[in-house]
Design a protein around this nucleic acid. Structure first.
Length: 845
RNA sequence: GCCGGAGUGGCGGAAUUGGUAGACGCAAGGGACUUAAAAUCCCUCGUCCCUAAAGGGCGUACCGGUUCGAGUCCGGUCUCCGGCACCA
């Protein structure tokens, strides 16, 4: 209880961290009658040390959790470890330490660091994804999805790093290079396990509109990622063959402008049409290369079913097999890619859309009389002089009975025509692809599948879960997947026929782990039966889900967040949970920047949180990172700014120290005090205190604008500093102001708030206090500053009392000496009075 | 290229619904205390003109518009950042 003169954060912080842990203040209660709040921050990868991004992320989350607790919510605020992943394998290769050992050691250290920050986690719900008791359920979900056809195996092209000998996820490919070893990534065809996320494409897209608590840009990124395209599939008969070429287009209004066709190198028809396999292989090798469009004439022609045009078919490296039908119609006049291709291979260009304002230009109109087919055959272009494709809307020309129609209505008419004539049908395509989850790595969840010579693909029976990741493997970083070399793991018996079977050696993408961890937090840690826990009618999950506030970096805007939305829907459809949307509100915090760039070791601009906390303490570190910018914006790090935050806490400490005796002796009977006996200067402080309670509360509620909330607290502390109590009522007001400051500060800088709270004679813990309320009456200013403008320019200010009627305000303004001088003999045209704010006098020349 | 977001003092940022631009903090300058320094405290601090004090002009990337009044709304331009990128 004896307050030291000098604020030493180390002492204070360790003291209270121990106290909170002993008292189990952060333990989650389960009380279905109490309103709940699930506050979650994205869990870290245990790389070894926390960085400033973590400090910021977790400081924000901790403020939310502590604030909501004080607002009377039952708060779930858990933490865990995204513990599978390649860095552990790299460490193993480099230092010869087992990934498991490396990971658990990192977790131990990082947990200490998080605790040193004073974060209010309930560690009884800690998750470690690399523990069998966790990843067992990855496997369990996999089996359920396999049963439902949501997990399947297929051949596809994947990003392949030849040096690391593994598949890479899209986000691990940076400018066509491997993020780890910088070698050029190639496309490789591999058989892989996929989750059928596309099954939920429409729902995931549609329900984006329900994500009202998400930042708009993140929702938009998800929408774009899913990429719905509405169009039409059309069958083009192939000349001399009994087959049709099915194409997809979103531009049926350009169907009459088709002058050639392109198919993907992997398209089944390519091999049938192209005789020279060497040439076809050459195009295949260039598949997906963006620098150059390469084509190969197949020798075949198709007939445009709308106008009978005979058009050549090309194999082209830029046509994607994965989207649409793998075949496109090419309209060089109205698609820039087709235009470039046409120019390169000297193919005809036919205009079918003219901008509305150029419809009188005769060059575009006359073609209908000509024989299209012969024009194309003779390479006589309809539009020899254009330099680029016209991709916008306009009037349809050269398109038979559709000529003269505006392109947007032509789209509908042509689709209708196609469907009536049974030439094709309206379709929807999505850019979203199924999620490839196979990784040729060791440190991940084994995929619970067996390959039996007789029975084929056999799922591991549920009772045999988990399929344990073997410990005794050799990690070299070269050659094949490490699990392939573990004989004991690889060879097993088929559960169906008891014959010889081989295990799947690929492991799961670590994004699987993080796609449902928020559900696992709803229960205590340890080896639980998640299945029956979830299905129990009293399931804690029903109470806690969905997450009320999720906080993390914007770099997961699509991947992790989209996967989680998908997984949650799968769990819902399996009857395990009732909500489909996992995160009610999402806050994406900005990056921590220094010297204009993201902190990174290679740039040498890293601030080490360990050093920071050693020097200034957790309270200062937290306070600065919350004060320097609003959470969603990038935060420019400033060592001097940290000093400023430190000074502020020192100053507060100093005030309390100076008055410690008087403050602690005084009884806390503030509620009963007589406001009529209060002195003028004390009533100003009292008002400011109520105004600050209001400001801090509304700033937190207003999208967590902690920076302005803290600024408000600084203002109040400035006033307290210059306040000198004399009478009893003064002292009471003074103590009241300090107490409010401490409670309002406590979510931001918890330790110092707790220490000073105790020092002025209160029982800990300050976190058992209710969040203060303000009195609107007391907070209201009696007098307001009225701004007087003339023609919108500020000319004078006067003090008036609150609630002065408009006509009186007007009169007072016009009577001002200065205003009279300016107005002089000029006519007053109009006077505008804005209540409580200003008067604008409009005068003539 | 397409889709977003943002441009405010020397700096980080305030200004919540169209109503006093620059809260709060940092830096800088001046002063007090000190043998001295650090720490602390006090004052100044967008810019230009002018003044003895006062005043006044300009100012939220740039150009224009709406309005009694625009950082805020509308149209156009420029710059920076982010996402997607041969998706037919």
């Amino acid at each position: 209880m004896v307050l030291e003169e000098r604020y030493s954060p180390q002492k204070v912080e360790l003291k209270w961290q121990k106290y909170w842990a002993d008292k189990q203040l952060n333990k989650t209660g389960f009380n279905p009658s109490q309103k709940k709040f699930y506050c979650l921050e994205m869990f870290p990868y245990p790389s070894g040390e926390i960085h400033m991004g973590h400090v910021r992320n977790y400081a924000i989350g901790d403020v939310v959790a502590r604030y909501k607790r004080m607002r009377g919510y039952n708060v779930l605020h858990p933490m865990g470890w995204d513990a599978f992943g390649l860095p552990a394998e790299n460490a193993a290769i480099k230092h010869g330490v087992h990934p498991s050992e490396w990971t658990y050691k990192n977790i131990e250290y990082m947990k200490k660091q998080l605790n040193r920050m004073g974060l209010s986690y309930d560690w009884e719900r800690e998750i470690t994804t690399c523990s069998p008791e966790y990843y067992k359920w990855n496997q369990w979900f996999f089996l359920r999805m396999f049963e439902k056809g949501l997990a399947y195996r297929k051949h596809s092209y994947v990003n392949w790093c030849p040096s690391c000998a593994t598949v890479l996820a899209n986000e691990q490919v940076i400018d066509e290079k491997c993020w780890r070893c910088d070698s050029t990534v190639t496309q490789k065809k591999l058989e892989q396990w996929f989750f059928r996320i596309t099954h939920y494409a429409e729902e995931l897209l549609r329900e984006c509109d329900e994500l009202r608590g998400w930042p708009e840009r993140v929702v938009l990124m998800q929408k774009n990622w899913i990429g719905k395209g509405e169009g039409v599939e059309v069958d083009f008969p192939i000349e001399g063959m009994d087959e049709q070429l099915k194409i997809f287009t979103t531009r049926p209004d350009t169907l009459f402008g088709v002058t050639f066709m392109c198919i993907a190198p992997e398209h089944p028809m390519a091999e049938k049409m192209v005789k020279d396999t060497n040439k076809l292989e050459a195009v295949k090798a260039q598949y997906g290369k963006e620098d150059e469009k390469i084509g190969l004439f197949t020798g075949s022609y198709t007939i445009n079913p709308l106008n009978g045009d005979r058009v050549p078919v090309y194999v082209a490296n830029f046509v994607l097999m994965e989207y649409g039908t793998g075949a496109i119609m090419s309209v060089p006049a109205h698609d820039q890619r087709d235009f470039e291709f046409a120019k390169k291979y000297d193919l005809p260009i036919k205009i079918v859309i003219v901008p509305e304002d150029r419809i009188q230009d005769t060059r575009y109109r006359i073609q209908d009389k000509k024989n299209h087919a012969s024009c194309i055959m003779n390479h006589e272009s309809f539009a020899p002089d254009i330099t680029e494709a016209y991709e916008d809307e306009g009037i349809i020309v050269n398109s038979g009975k559709f000529s003269g129609v505006k392109s947007d209505s032509a789209k509908k008419e042509i689709i209708q025509f196609i469907e009536e004539k049974r030439l094709g049908r309206g379709t929807i395509n999505y850019k979203l692809r199924d999620w490839g989850i196979s990784r040729q790595r060791y440190w991940g969840t084994p995929i619970p599948i067996l390959y039996c010579d007789k029975c084929g693909i056999v799922p591991v029976p549920e009772k045999d879960l988990p399929v344990i990741l073997p410990e005794d493997v050799r990690l070299t970083g070269k050659g094949v997947s490490p699990l392939l070399e573990s004989e004991a793991f690889l060879n097993t018996k088929c559960p169906k026929c008891s014959g010889r079977a081989r295990r799947e050696t690929d492991t799961m993408d670590t994004f699987v782990d993080s796609s449902w961890y928020f559900v696992r937090y709803c229960f205590k840690k340890g080896d639980i039966n998640l299945d029956s826990e979830l299905l129990s009618p009293q399931s804690e999950c029903k109470y806690w889900m969905p997450v009320d506030q999720y906080i993390g970096g914007v770099e997961h805007a699509v991947l992790h967040l989209l996967y989680s939305r998908f997984f949650t829907r799968v769990m819902r459809d399996l009857g395990l949970i009732s909500t489909g949307e996992p995160f009610q509100n999402l806050l994406t915090q900005g990056m921590v920047i220094k010297d204009g760039a993201k902190m990174s070791k290679s740039k040498g601009n890293v601030v080490d949180p360990h050093y920071l906390i050693e020097k200034y303490g957790a309270d200062t570190s937290r306070l600065f990172s919350l004060f320097a910018a609003p959470p969603e914006r990038d935060l420019e790090w400033s060592d001097k700014g940290v000093e400023g935050a430190y000074r502020f806490l020192h100053r507060l400490w100093g005030i309390v120290y100076k008055n410690r005796e008087a403050l602690s002796v005084m009884r806390n009977d503030i509620r009963g005090f007589d406001a009529s006996r209060i002195t003028d200067h004390a009533s100003l402080l009292l008002r400011k205190t109520h105004q600050t309670i209001k400001k801090v509360t509304t700033d937190i509620e207003r999208e967590y604008h902690f920076n302005t909330a803290i600024a408000g607290l600084m203002e109040l502390v400035n006033e307290i500093t210059s306040f000198e109590p004399e009478s009893d009522e003064d002292w009471k007001t003074f103590k009241f102001a300090i107490e409010r400051v401490l409670i309002l500060l406590s979510p931001f800088s918890p330790h110092i708030a707790e220490e000073l709270w105790e020092a002025i004679g209160n029982e800990p813990s300050i976190f058992e206090q209710q969040w203060p309320k303000w009195d609107e009456e007391i907070a209201r200013e009696e007098e307001i500053e009225l701004v007087i403008q003339i023609n919108g320019k500020l000319r004078s200010k006067i003090m008036i009392s609150q609630g002065t009627p408009d006509d009186e305000i007007e009169k007072m303004a016009l009577e001002q000496q200065k205003i009279k001088e300016i107005v002089g003999a000029k006519t007053i045209k109009k006077v505008i009075v804005v209540k409580g704010k200003l008067v604008n006098i409009v005068i003539g020349e």
